[in-house]
């Protein structure tokens, strides 16, 4: 007696319910993803959801990543429109109202100079997002080029690039940042440059390892057999395949750079007062911990929210773009 008809049924909705795990020890998840892999290869295939829609489905089923992405986008949006919605200019001091608790007038309270903490947090968002964003973009740009080159060519030049990466990665990043900022002075541009230099090796390493992996694949060999130019092979054949890991790494670097910029601000090596840098605000808040805990709370919450959101988003990206067989 066939039960084929009963089991197949209508394709349950756009995104089928994911399998809930077996609560006891289950030591063979790998097979589950093998079946998924076969499904993608059209052997034990599922429905016809492909391409971008597939990614949306997967994102939708991962609440953590979804939350992260939403929060991230919200903060970026707020950073962009900050000046327009800010109730007070961030540096406007109000001698009448220092250290006021959060209220209808001052959502996040005021600091020791009577400045509105909410406005300062908003304007700080702008600073941190811009600096981190530009720094990460720079790291990605240089990292991609150097990583492609270092991975593909064998020879002295790529060895040097790899060694430079190793060298830069040998130093704890905050220490290196401190030394560099101390040399060139803490301006916004310098911080962007420092972030860029600091994180280029990470991006470069990731790209390099993907290139090393792809270099020996047959489609690259086929291109070589057609005597394609190196530029074509690197940019048209290999680069598109690095986008997955690259996106994940970029998101991670962005989150680290927020961390870094905030830490530099905390140590006094970031943008100087009276700028409303979140790290700086936290550092100021130390002295008023008992009196005005909101001075600490809101900038800290902002930093934490942005970093955590970016982490969740990047982790979600990693899961979504992971090749078959490496789920989780």
């Amino acid at each position: 007696m066939t039960r084929r008809g009963a089991s197949a049924g209508p394709t349950p909705g756009l995104c089928a319910r994911a399998s809930r795990g077996d609560p006891e020890w289950n030591t063979d998840r790998g097979w589950q993803t093998q079946v998924e892999a076969q499904g993608r290869q059209g052997k034990v295939s599922g429905g016809d959801v492909r391409g971008v829609r597939l990614y949306w489905c997967r994102l939708a089923r991962r609440p953590a990543a979804l939350v992260g992405t939403v929060v991230f986008l919200t903060i970026v949006l707020l950073a962009a429109i900050g000046p327009t919605i800010s109730p007070y200019p961030p540096n406007e001091q109000d001698a009448e109202a220092p250290l006021e608790a959060p209220s209808g007038r001052h959502f996040f309270g005021t600091d020791q100079f009577g400045r509105d903490v909410f406005s300062r947090v908003l304007s700080g968002a702008r600073g941190v997002v811009t600096v981190s964003g530009l720094g990460t973009a720079m790291a990605v740009a240089i990292g991609v080029f150097s990583g492609l080159f270092a991975g593909y060519q064998r020879g002295v030049r790529s060895e040097i690039i790899t060694r430079v990466y190793d060298l830069l990665l040998c130093i704890p990043s905050l220490l290196l940042a401190m030394v560099l900022i101390a040399s060139v002075g803490p301006s916004k541009v310098n911080i962007v440059l420092v972030v860029g230099i600091l994180y280029t090796p990470n991006v470069g390493r990731v790209v390099r390892s993907v290139v090393l992996d792809l270099k020996s694949k047959e489609f690259v060999e086929a291109a070589k057999a057609r005597k394609e130019r190196r530029g074509y092979i690197l940019f048209r054949e290999i680069l598109p395949n690095t986008l997955g890991p690259l996106m994940v790494e970029s998101a991670m670097r962005f989150s680290y750079s927020i961390f870094l910029v905030a830490s530099l601000g905390f140590l006094g090596l970031g943008v100087q007062p009276p700028a409303s840098d979140w790290g700086l605000m936290v550092s100021d808040a130390r002295d008023f911990l008992q009196l005005a805990p909101w001075m600490l709370l809101f900038p800290s919450a902002a930093i934490a929210a942005l970093v955590i959101a970016t982490n969740l988003m990047s982790d979600g990206l990693r899961q979504i773009t992971a090749p078959a067989g490496s789920a989780g």
Binding site: R4, G9, P12, A16, A18, G39, V44, G46, V49
Partner: peptide, 16 residues
């Protein structure tokens, strides 16, 4: 009869 539940559908991999 054995079935698999994947992301997209329930697959009757082995039947009767």
């Amino acid at each position: 009869s054995i079935e698999y539940t994947t992301e997209q559908a329930v697959l009757p991999a082995v039947r009767d």
